[in-house]
Design a protein around this nucleic acid. Structure first.
Lengths: 340, 340
DNA sequence: TTGAAAGCGCTAACAG
DNA sequence: CTGTTAGCGCTTTCAA
């Protein structure tokens, strides 16, 4: 017994009494090989516990079959759910996922370099940090980039987002119809396109309705900071009665602070609305009114866009917005019923 | 301009006027190369945008630098948090993470095969499905396996778990001291070692105290199913006053069902205790008493165990239990204060 | 310190 | 359908 090395195609070939190329062919779906030869190889492979080395294959085919996914915010349920869905989508398309989580603090650049060295065929960026520079480096290396839930100003890179402006505008109208008067927006990260787009849709709609502009605080998409922002809001001389939060995760922080620290009844004393419709939003404890960004469809679009770039390197940037919809639950006062 | 191919070490060598081996050496930390040569190479690499191909390197070094992580339950906050921590840990150790999420339903075996073909150096299993058979296949292929948060009966494979028995026993004592009388356990998956161990610690402690055995329902670690189980519990003629749930995720389902559907005040009318101490448990809306499984330390132990196997292929299985602690919050009635 | 040469395990022409 | 022959891009002896 030769215990040290894993069996190679040569070993299998020797045992099966065929050439090494025959072994290769036996493991290649469309290859031309006789049933007999394939059987011989399969048996030999079985007894040896042979498994084709995909690394060696990648080297020659120049396709690693690997997609890099950068994802942050694992405490915001939206991202793990998305990761799960994307992973499944890529797996179904025959790709493996190399995960990298650019932790808080520290320069994310070295990790990018690492990933590119590993010959990922494309990169999906789902983290607000490291978006622009990172994306640039990738496209310089001719590695397609797909941004998820964020975009860049320059239309040079692909992105899949929700309908941030439209969704926020719909929320504004919903709150206006609900008879609210003092609005507030809890922003995410200042340099996040997503937070800015949502703010814009919200603020513009209020302005068009001739209402008092919304108070603005910043939660940085962080639970603790969002709670801090909520305290600022509720401690003000004239606190808001309608709060739109940059995402559900932020909304949870705001709701709980309102209830636990200010004794406010959410949905009655004040209205809180989020964005995303993560599974938690439907939990009885939250019952959050929010604008749904559908996980599965978005994941599918990300996968599709990535595959499009892989299929055609000259494919122009794809910028898609996936439709969402307002999910009305109990965290915001309802507009009066209209006759239909 | 030759746009099609990415630059290789040869291209860099040609431009720098050195041999291709020199290029290799310039990118190998400990290699013997003159400052001059290294500089030449670095400049040439810079202008060409050269990045060493790690796939090619793996082929010759026989080390892919990649760890496979199988993880499920992305809706249970414990797992994304753990994934994040493990990813960071492996990255710090110079390893990349290949993620695979064995979705619900379907045979997980083909995906395993896929992963092994990709030459991962080790596999971390953090999903209850695919544990035993999968682990066997891996060790047959001489790929070290580390189970996370689960173990197998046979002590042949490494595992990192929390103190399930002890933690559950401590919870039982806490509830007994709190003066509860009618206990219940909401189990996870029936074939999960974790759920069984927790149940055992809980049940044994009750028995030793001479108390009525706990009612037992099954939540399968699933939110909806756990709610269903909770309904069964609360609809019984003599409903429990102390419920221990297999994990926090299950506890959230139980708490909310108690409140929303049965009008029970958690922490007053009934006590609910979980296991894990996920970030959500500390949210005001839940304020869940639970037994903490510390994410960071557990992740560190997983990484350490994996590296130990990598460093020494003959390393015997490592079975570690990471200490936890009871986190007392408001979801369970407190034992009466004692004089200290 | 350096370059030449020999592969890592596999795929992909190319003849037979 | 099959075996032979070149490599994929890199690391690693081995002499020089």
């Amino acid at each position: 017994m030769k215990p040290s090395r894993r069996p190679t195609a040569h070993d299998v070939a020797a045992l099966a009494g065929v050439s090494q190329s025959a072994v290769s062919r036996a493991f290649t779906p469309g290859a031309s090989i006789s049933r007999r030869a394939r059987l011989l190889v399969q048996q030999a492979a079985e007894t040896l516990g042979y498994r084709p080395n995909l690394i060696a294959r990648s080297l020659i085919t120049r396709r690693s079959g690997t997609i890099g996914i950068a994802i942050g915010y694992m405490d915001n349920q939206f991202y793990p759910a998305m990761l799960d869905a994307m992973c499944a989508g890529f797996a179904a398309a025959g790709y493996r996922v190399l995960l990298f989580t650019p932790g808080p603090g520290g320069d994310p650049d070295p990790i990018l370099d690492e990933v590119l060295r590993y010959q990922v065929e494309a990169v999906v960026l789902a983290s607000a940090r490291l978006t622009s520079h990172f994306a640039e480096q990738c496209s310089q290396a001719r590695v397609p980039v797909v941004l998820f839930n964020r975009r860049t100003e320059r239309a040079t890179v692909s992105s899949i987002t929700g309908r941030n402006r439209e969704g926020a505008a719909e929320i504004a109208r919903f709150l206006i119809d609900g008879g609210h008067l003092r609005f507030a927006y809890v922003a995410g990260l200042e340099d996040s396109s997503t937070s800015r787009d949502r703010e814009r849709g919200f603020v513009d709609t209020l302005r068009q309705a001739g209402l008092t502009p919304a108070t603005r605080v910043v939660g940085h998409y962080d639970f603790a900071l969002a709670r801090e922002a909520a305290r600022t809001l509720f401690s003000a001389p004239s606190p808001p009665d309608a709060i739109f939060c940059a995402n559900d995760h932020t909304a949870f922080a705001v709701m709980q602070t309102a209830q636990a620290e200010f004794g406010l009844r959410v949905g009655t004393d004040i209205s809180v609305v989020g964005f995303d419709d993560v599974p938690l939003a439907a939990w009885p404890a939250f019952d959050l009114t929010t604008y749904a960004q559908p996980i599965r469809p978005m994941a599918e679009r990300v996968v599709a866009a990535t595959l499009a770039h892989l299929a055609d390197p000259l494919c122009p940037p794809i910028q898609e917005q996936v439709d969402g919809s307002l999910i009305v639950r109990g965290s915001a006062r309802l507009p009066p019923r209209r006759h239909s």
